[in-house]
Design a protein around this nucleic acid. Structure first.
Length: 292
DNA sequence: AATTTCATCAACCGCCAGGGA
DNA sequence: CTCCCTGGCGGTTGATGAAAT
């Protein structure tokens, strides 16, 4: 049958499966076994035709999801390690809700799993404009303290590297922090003005995605928190200085990467290197460098 | 002990981009 | 060049169990 003929046969978008015949809801162990056995022997082929071939009363899309998210042999189950948490924070600061991009940097973890983990655990730890955490009263098992945000570990790690030792006076907790996604949006827009106004209005420096602590000379009132997000409360002047330093930092890192790549020797080895690697994948195809 | 509230996460839905005919 | 199919993605829902009252 010609495509045009098929088009005339059924107008509009064809449903991915016959809703009346497919089963929905949780998968049973029997269904899982059928799916895994079939793929092991034959591969999945075209997902659309997979359920019929495998003998499952499921939508092909549902089969694909079940396989890619839960039954694939290379899936890593269990709790996220602190290293994985840190990596997710760093990647999210760069990519936002691009779960597939984040998952591609975490072997064995799926986008769905990371998305759920972010929404149920990590998102709560990002402070909002009031300086409070985006969370209901924390459960007993959740150790959330505004004075010790999750990226504190990263700061300590970076400090240990001694590449950018922190001035102790810069480490007091930030008290007013804007939302990182807002910042990313404004940063990505390439329009500095809204960002400046935002800072002036709230007397809040910023929440800048950064893989390592940033050191800069400050006036007497600035306080700084460093990590996946760099944040601070400050006067307008010290804000400006902080941003300048931030940009210089990124520029230097980008140059480092460029140099290393030109020697064909850059191999990401840890979370920090992965983040630097990601700078080159930043939205707008690296266009962000013009603002650095 | 019973009921309500909350947190978690597996699964679904709709949309989109890429590729092939 | 257009149309369609497919896989992939991100947002959302709802079932379930745990915690609180």
């Amino acid at each position: 049958m010609s495509k045009r003929g098929r088009k005339e046969e059924k107008m509009g978008r064809a449903p991915c499966c016959n809703k009346g015949e497919v089963k929905k809801g949780s998968w049973t162990p029997e269904e899982d076994k059928i799916l895994v056995d079939y793929i092991t022997k034959n591969g999945h082929g075209t997902w659309r035709s997979f359920p019929k071939l495998a003998g499952l009363r499921r939508c092909g899309k549902s089969c694909r999801l079940r396989w890619t998210n839960y039954l694939r042999p290379d899936i890593k189950r269990g709790a996220f390690s602190s290293e994985e948490e840190q990596t997710i924070f760093q990647l999210h600061s760069l990519h936002g809700n691009k779960w597939a991009a984040i998952a591609s940097r975490l072997p064995g973890r799926t986008d769905n799993e990371i998305k759920n983990f972010w929404n149920s655990h990590l998102r709560k730890r990002i402070p909002n404009k009031n300086g409070t955490l985006q969370t209901n009263p924390p459960s007993k098992s959740t150790d959330i303290k505004f004075t010790l945000p999750p990226w504190e570990n990263i700061r300590k790690e970076a400090e240990a590297e001694t590449r950018l030792p922190m001035d102790p006076m810069l480490l007091s907790p930030a008290t007013g922090i804007s939302d990182g996604n807002n910042f990313l949006h404004e940063w990505g827009s390439g329009d500095e003005e809204p960002f400046q106004k935002h800072m002036d209005r709230d007397k809040v420096a910023c929440l800048i995605p950064t893989p390592r602590p940033i050191k800069f000379e400050s006036d007497s009132v600035v306080t700084v928190q460093a990590g996946p997000y760099f944040a601070g409360t400050s006067t307008s002047e010290s804000c400006d200085q902080g941003i300048k330093e931030h940009r210089r930092f990124f520029k230097e890192e980008a140059e480092e990467i460029t140099n290393a790549e030109s020697q064909n020797s850059y191999e990401p080895e840890n979370a920090s290197d992965i983040t630097l690697d990601l700078l080159l994948d930043f939205p707008n195809d690296g266009e962000y460098l013009q603002y650095v």
